[in-house]
Design a protein around this nucleic acid. Structure first.
Length: 486
RNA sequence: GCGCCGUUAGCUCAGCCUGGUAGAGCACCGGACUUUUAAUCCGGGGGUCGCAGGUUCGAAUCCUGCACGGCGCACCA
């Protein structure tokens, strides 16, 4: 028997004894609390001496003979319980002493202070609501092993207050996004997660199958094409917050499923979307952090608008010395990439190489919020061409702390050109580019009915949460990140 | 997929370089204790050193393979 099993057996034996003495710790269906623990702390002066009922998990026990102290933890915080033999009687007191760290109990008692001045509930009666059969992680260090933190997130949440705070902030961030968008008159919608044709991004999809229809379906890589159909349908300001799925590598910045917000706004261009983006993110930070300034991985960042706006080619030129305005062929682009020490595939064209250099050599240096503007048309099959330079699109990406957090453009609404762009993507696909966009005839058809000029935006919500919680890995902001099964 | 690093008690970690009976704190079990809050004090139990091979008289320690995890690269928003 392993030592872990021995500890488990000890607890099972305790459970059996409890049941034999008529206590079934799993029989309770509710426990009526009068206050949360942080409420008692905040309203001590008003509640002192009153009888009240609390519940939570025992996180520490300190026995001192005929008096015992326990740290009780609920969702709001921690408070001390004080159990006295004098108050409880010998038999009940011994049952209290028999409790373990990890047990979930309800207690009624009077609010008081210990001799050392600690706010405490002086227990009059208590109820075991759930017996813990496994030991809690160590009280002082908590869980450090990242594998346990991700795989057994509940232990992480129980013992690491900073982890709990990250996920509370995540919820606040998403709430703040909704507040902002709703206040701006946008309508939140839901579109399919299962797509017959995966579209709206350049990425590999997950495949699944519908049995009754005998049809392959793809988990969505982006909601974009459905949201634009809604603009065709006459809605003018829509957004969706939801999960996207991409069958690609895992990294500190990539999880196979991640949360994205997409926004579509009729009759405005990407300039308006830029303003929306910086105002939105500024609002969220102030709402959640109380300030537009924060530290991410040692860098002081200020989200106060307006953010820097730099042409993509200028940014690449500034950080690498390579001027893509003067580089027209795929071959020249490959040479330039090689000179920067980047490996490129022989099939990579100029557009892909620009994207590659951006991601590897430029993005990590964009610490203060920055819009990069003017993306090559080859890597932007859904974006409208720039009037000044038809080789570029009216597209921007926003970078903060070296992370790409937003991608947006004036949406292509010319059905003929959209069809041609899809056909070009099909050619790339046939040439072996698995991420090239698939043809979506129904979407082209929708554009043929007429889509107003529209600005669109995508925001990587997980990355925004990373920034505002100073988390180095996307796994720190996703409750259950994908791991290999044990 | 490739490279580097990690995996020792329930948890946090030492021990590994330089092979010689596997350690500490917390947790757990028994005892003392009516004001602690990382309680303290006395005593005790607990290990397939990630897994499998190899080298060796002898392997937690050296070598190889594998698993899982982290980081980087590749891939990719």
């Amino acid at each position: 028997m392993t030592p872990e099993e021995q500890l488990y057996m000890t607890q099972l034996k305790k459970l059996k004894q409890l049941r034999e003495s008529g206590i079934d710790p799993y029989s309770h269906t509710q426990y009526a609390r009068t206050h949360t623990l942080s409420e008692l702390r905040e309203r001590f002066d008003e509640l002192e001496g009153q009888a009240l009922r609390v519940a939570g998990r025992l996180m520490a026990l300190r026995h001192h003979g005929r008096i015992s102290f326990a740290s009780l933890q609920d969702a709001s915080g921690r408070l001390q319980l004080m159990a006295r033999e004098e108050q409880l009687g010998k038999e009940r007191y011994l049952q209290f002493v028999d409790l373990d760290v990890g047990d979930i109990i309800g207690a009624c008692g009077t609010l008081t202070k210990s001799r050392r001045g600690e706010i405490s509930v002086d227990v009059i009666e208590f109820t075991l609501l759930a017996k813990a059969l496994r030991p809690m992680p160590e009280k002082w260090h908590g869980i450090k092993d990242v594998e346990i933190r991700y795989r057994y997130r509940y232990l992480d949440l129980l013992t690491n207050p900073t982890s709990r705070d990250v996920f509370i902030k995540r919820t606040q961030i998403i709430r703040a996004i909704r507040e902002f968008m709703d206040a701006q008159g946008f309508m939140e919608v839901e579109t399919p997660m299962m797509h017959p044709i995966p579209g709206g991004a350049l990425a590999k999809p997950f495949v699944t199958h519908h049995n009754a229809l005998d049809m392959d379906l793809y988990l969505r890589i982006a909601p974009e094409l459905y949201l634009k159909r809604l603009i065709v349908g006459g809605f003018e300001k829509v957004y969706e917050i939801g999960r996207n799925f991409r069958n690609e590598g895992i990294s500190p910045r990539h999880n196979p499923e991640f949360t994205m917000m997409e926004v579509y706004w009729a009759y405005v261009d990407y300039e308006a979307i830029m303003c929306l983006t910086e105002e939105l993110i500024h609002y969220v930070a102030v709402r959640v952090l109380g300030t537009p300034k924060f530290t991410y991985q040692g860098n002081e960042i200020d989200l106060t608008p307006p953010w820097a706006r730099i042409k993509l080619f200028d940014a690449i030129s500034d950080h690498t010395g390579v001027d893509f305005a003067a580089i027209c062929t795929d071959e020249e682009a490959r040479v330039a990439a090689n000179e920067l020490g980047l490996e490129v595939m022989p099939t990579d064209d100029r557009g892909r190489i620009i994207d590659e250099i951006l991601k590897k050599r430029v993005a990590p240096k964009l610490i203060q919020p920055t819009f990069l503007i003017g993306y090559p048309v080859e890597i932007s099959p859904l974006a409208k061409r720039s009037q000044q330079d038809p080789s570029l699109t009216e597209r921007f990406q926003a970078f903060i702390g070296g992370l790409e957090v937003a991608n947006a453009f004036s949406e292509l609404n010319d059905p003929i050109e959209q069809r041609e762009r899809f056909e070009e993507q099909m050619r790339r696909r046939e040439a072996g580019d698995e991420e090239a966009h698939q043809m979506d005839w129904d979407f082209v058809r929708a554009l043929e009915y007429g889509m107003p000029p529209t600005g669109g935006l995508g925001i990587g919500v997980d990355r925004l949460v990373m920034l505002l919680t100073d988390s180095p890995s996307i796994r720190d902001v996703i409750l259950f990140p994908l791991l290999r099964s044990e």
